[in-house]
């Protein structure tokens, strides 16, 4: 747009932009600052954005406390496994949803949409009982399978949008040449789908990495806790809350998602819109 704008409008717009910048960015800034403050300073009731003296011990303390390192390992394992399984499972189904006509497709779409409506609180009780029945209660595997199931609607939604964006003519041409469906899938669809797959995989990783509620109920042994659960247990009701290590732990928990999101930013948007428009 190249239209003229009165100067005061420009000023107002910059002011608004600055406010957004501050509003969105400040919490992370404060968290960073707290993670470098000494416990004395955090307890002193003084409010400063910059630490009076930079204290790097919080990160070490965070890793030592409450098995945070173990929890990070659990989170990493769960997130990667969820990512791999979800992608493997959703690829064929997304293809089916996008390409095959009929009742199956309608049913799939309806399920994807309704699964958003049901509160996880309704599912969690029987889910807990189901997992207990198949001896997967209080295991990381149980959590992974549950995560896979719960991210599938969204990944399918995204992926089928990407599949739909691939012109069917390409596949038909392959069919003419006598290639089998699987060859077509592997040599034509898969390469074109790669960017979408990467975006979907990363999205799945972040959802699993950030998830709190299901892990809270489905994991009971402290040595299986994922990072969000371990962080939450930092905030003891009566025990001495150590804000410095807590902030440091929170920073560590944010970094992977933040990195992935900055890589992903554009693709994720494209994917969601593809799903919305073409679906």
């Amino acid at each position: 747009m190249t239209m003229k704008r009165p100067w005061y409008a420009t000023v107002l717009m910059y002011a608004a932009l600055a406010m957004f910048l501050f509003f969105l960015g400040f919490p992370l800034l404060w968290l960073l600052s707290a993670s470098f403050k000494s416990s004395g300073e955090l307890n002193s009731l003084a409010v400063n954005l910059l630490p009076a003296e930079w204290d790097f011990s919080n990160f070490g303390a965070a890793l030592e406390r409450q098995n945070l390192l173990l929890a990070a390992g659990n989170s990493l394992f769960v997130s990667i496994a969820t990512m791999v399984i979800t992608v493997l499972l959703s690829m064929p189904m997304a293809y089916a949803l996008a390409r095959l006509k009929g009742r199956l497709r309608a049913a799939g779409t309806v399920w994807i949409l309704t699964s958003q409506v049901f509160p996880s609180i309704l599912i969690i009780i029987p889910l807990f009982l189901v997992l207990r029945a198949i001896s997967l209660n209080d295991t990381l595997l149980g959590l992974i399978l549950v995560y896979v199931t719960f991210t599938l609607p969204f990944t399918l939604w995204m992926l089928q949008g990407y599949v739909a964006a691939i012109p069917t003519e390409l596949e038909e041409a392959g069919e003419m040449d006598g290639a089998s469906r699987i060859t077509i899938l592997r040599t034509i669809v898969l390469p074109l789908l790669a960017p979408g797959l990467v975006a979907t995989a990363m999205f799945t990783f972040v959802s699993a990495w950030n998830e709190f509620f299901l892990a809270l109920v489905l994991l009971q042994s402290p040595e299986l806790y994922t990072l969000p659960i371990a962080l939450r247990s930092f905030l003891g009701a009566e025990g001495q809350t150590q804000l410095g290590p807590l902030a440091a732990g929170a920073i560590l928990a944010t970094i992977p998602s933040l990195i992935i999101f900055s890589i992903l930013q554009k693709k994720l948007t494209g994917g969601m819109l593809a799903g919305a428009v073409k679906g």
Partner: peptide, 19 residues
């Protein structure tokens, strides 16, 4: 090693889950 916070809920799921 566990923590005091949220112990009640955790014990509920531990007992019912058999863990």
């Amino acid at each position: 090693q566990a923590g005091w916070d949220g112990t009640f809920d955790k014990l509920v799921t531990q007992f019912t889950g058999g863990t």
